[in-house]
Design a binder for these strands. Structure first.
Length: 422
RNA sequence: GGAGAGUUGGCAGAGUGGUUGAAUGCGGCGGUCUUGAAAACCGUUAUACCGAAAGGUAUCAGGGGUUCGAAUCCCUUACUCUCCGCCA
């Protein structure tokens, strides 16, 4: 969340920002509710002050009656205050983070600028297949039985593809750890209030999150949740920052909606594996870390020798906690570009600078060497995400005779296999 | 899953109904002493919110209750520990 005081002092700026980020929040209502809350709180506190004063020592029967009267008033005010607090919190959670100055202000999600293209779309001297067809011929994915056992959009990986998923995870983990990150395997579930503090709304209308019945737990959609929650309610010495973490987890997303030809096979699924980078920094180092994340993501995809481009989310396409988000979009020869043409760029990684938005919710501060405390910055970025990376490899590395070459960097994790064939 | 014990300030650890936001020790910070350091001694040392300030309110794991008054009594949830059971 952002600072309510900032909203009060910069109301117009915040409203403008909400508009470009397509966030539908009534800022005026938020401010007036907040002011009501403060007034009520003052009223309550002054009653409590009187009460505390009167009951400091053994009271006379008359004072006991007076205190009982005060208690009645307190009991009238209290529920009102609680409901106001909840309304304020609810509205505040809806206010997106501010926006980085270099981000394109646009209300159209398709206005994401392309910053860089690395490599070029793979060319074939035959008609390339999509990953669904390749998987079928090579017996690598079982979608039907995934659906039978767990439902639509679940899948079994088989044979070399099962090995390749783990190889990708290890490759990404190894690469990131070389940059001095601490490695983690995190819980795949997290408590509701952790999700909320990070800007995810587990029970909201557009929630992409599985909730566990009869508990306050949800399946995580990303290890960003567990790594952000890791230091919740902590104060971290300035000297210990930045903290660079890299975490393996499974990710679960409800992904409501039907398949289309644009999201075939395992492109959009309910469960996948991911290696995620997460950092805590002092505010002045946030942007530097964001670039570091982006560079590592590029390094990983360059290592896999996959063509990709870098895009910069415009305001309309920015997630609520982020001030700026870069995506890597890799080339997928089997992904339709439009009704007739094949081959398209598709999102494979995403890295965001969330400034103090998540830290405020999670109550994580940095203690400066001067003794001052302030909210620190959090950043996250995908190192590798299983399903999409697998699609990319299958489709880009396919050969004329229907086999798939295994990327060199993965071979050592796959028993030195070089090719997938039947 | 069963039985029991616990959760207090940065840490350790007192405190079982009334100036206790909380003794004491350690640690931290400032000072005295010293050429410097150590030791010793003196002082200081939680957080959030409201307020211009004085000050006020809340917080002794979370929530609820009893009471004029709760760190202290009751209920409940979470977590930790011990023993038993089960298990990869």
């Amino acid at each position: 969340m952002i600072d309510i005081k900032y909203i009060i002092d910069h109301t117009e700026e915040v409203k403008e920002n909400c508009k470009y980020r397509l966030a539908n929040v009534d800022i005026d209502l938020l401010i007036s509710k907040y002011k009501d809350k403060i007034e009520l709180q003052k009223e309550l506190e002054s009653l409590q002050a009187i009460k505390n004063q009167k009951s400091k020592t053994k009271p006379t029967p008359e004072t006991i009656e007076e205190i009982k009267d005060i208690n009645k008033k307190i009991e009238e005010i209290n529920p009102k205050l609680i409901s106001l607090e909840m309304e304020v919190k609810e509205l505040l959670f809806k206010v997106p983070n501010l926006t980085h100055k270099d981000v394109i202000r646009s209300m159209n999600e398709d206005d994401n600028p392309v910053l860089q293209i690395v490599g070029e779309p793979t060319k074939f001297d035959f008609k390339p297949k999509d990953h669904v067809e390749l998987a079928e011929q090579l017996d690598l994915i079982d979608l039907e039985r995934g659906a039978k056992v767990a439902g639509n959009k679940f899948y079994y990986l088989k044979n070399e593809l099962a090995l390749m998923e783990l190889a990708l995870m290890q490759y990404a983990l190894d690469t990131v750890v070389k940059h001095g990150f601490t490695s983690f395997i995190t819980p795949d579930l997290a408590k509701k209030d952790i999700l909320e503090s990070l800007g995810f709304n587990p029970r909201g209308e557009s929630a992409q999150i599985y909730n566990i019945e009869n508990s306050d737990l949800s399946l995580i959609g990303t290890a960003e949740i567990t790594m952000g929650g890791y230091h919740a309610n902590e104060i971290i010495d300035e000297d210990k920052l930045p903290l660079r973490y890299v975490a393996f987890s499974h990710c679960f997303r409800t992904e409501a909606g039907a398949y289309s030809k644009f999201s075939k096979g395992i492109f959009r699924v309910h469960q996948f594996s991911k290696v995620e980078m997460f950092a805590y920094t002092v505010p002045e180092d946030g942007e530097k870390m964001h670039n570091e994340f982006l560079n590592i993501e590029k390094e990983i995809f360059k290592g896999l020798k996959l063509p990709f481009r870098v895009i910069d989310h415009c305001t309309a396409d920015l997630g609520s906690p982020s001030i700026r988000t870069f995506d890597l979009e890799a080339w997928m020869p089997g992904k339709p570009k439009n009704e007739t043409e094949m081959g398209n760029w598709a999102e494979v990684t995403s890295t965001s600078n969330c400034t103090d938005y998540q830290a405020r919710g999670l109550n994580i501060k940095v203690k400066r060497n001067s003794g001052e405390k302030e909210y620190l910055y959090t950043l996250n970025g995908t190192a590798i995400s299983s399903a999409r990376a697998l699609i990319c490899i299958m489709e880009n590395y396919q050969t004329k005779d229907g086999t798939i070459i295994i990327p060199e960097v993965l071979r050592k994790y796959m028993g030195d296999r070089e090719i997938i064939k039947r």
